[in-house]
Design a protein around this nucleic acid. Structure first.
Length: 198
DNA sequence: GCGACAG
DNA sequence: ATCTTGTCGC
């Protein structure tokens, strides 16, 4: 159980982080290497895997980290549970853009796990989630947007949600989403589950 | 009070 | 996320 005063404190940190987001166009086409990070669990042990892949050759390398995870999963506070071990797995890998399993701006306080990691590392990140956390879906033309507080904070392609973490913009999310579910995340998910079995 | 709720 | 077999559908 997590005390109310701690969550209120964490909310303040999230507002601080959200005020430090840099929304700017990156340009998906300029990416040489792309990274993806995911986590799987076996009881209270978390296994995180970060995959770095060359966009043109699809050659990839990965790094993993495992350790006890004590913070519980609380909607809106996923970063406290997974960001620490995700960042350990990412450490040392080289890439231009990092994809995080979870939301970025499409969060109640515009501070999803992809945003937290992006701001802490001062690095370009995009959150890719499998389900909605906040906001409403509005279709405009051929794009389904996630609206929150009257502004577009993400997009939905197929069954996946893409939202800016840091140093990218909605257009980058659209360009990424149109390419289908990122291979690096698929590989990271696969490795993460394989790792916890051994 | 009730429903919603990333992984 | 995880617990879990077969099964309906593209």
């Amino acid at each position: 159980m997590v005390e109310k005063h701690l969550l209120e404190f964490l909310e303040k940190l999230q507002f601080l982080i959200s005020r430090n987001i840099n929304i700017e166009h990156y340009g998906i086409e300029k990416i040489k290497r792309i990274c993806g990070v995911d986590v799987a669990y076996k009881g209270n042990i978390g296994f995180s895997v970060a995959v770095s892949m060359d966009v043109s050759t699809e050659e990839y390398q990965y790094k993993s980290y495992s350790g006890e995870v004590s913070f519980p999963y609380i909607p809106g506070f996923l970063f406290m549970r997974e960001a620490p071990i995700m960042m350990k797995a990412i450490e040392g890998l080289e890439c231009d853009l990092l994809l995080v399993d979870g939301h970025g701006l499409a969060h109640p306080r515009k501070s999803g796990i992809a945003t937290v990691i992006g701001v802490l590392l001062d690095f370009p990140t995009i959150g890719v989630a499998k389900s909605r956390l906040a906001g409403e879906l509005i279709t405009e033309g051929d794009i389904v947007y996630v609206y929150l507080g009257g502004q577009k904070v993400g997009v939905k392609f197929g069954r996946f949600f893409y939202s800016p973490g840091n140093k990218v913009d909605l257009q980058d999310c659209i360009d990424l989403g149109r390419r289908g579910y990122p291979k690096v995340l698929k590989i990271a998910d696969m490795l993460t589950k394989k790792l916890k079995k051994e």
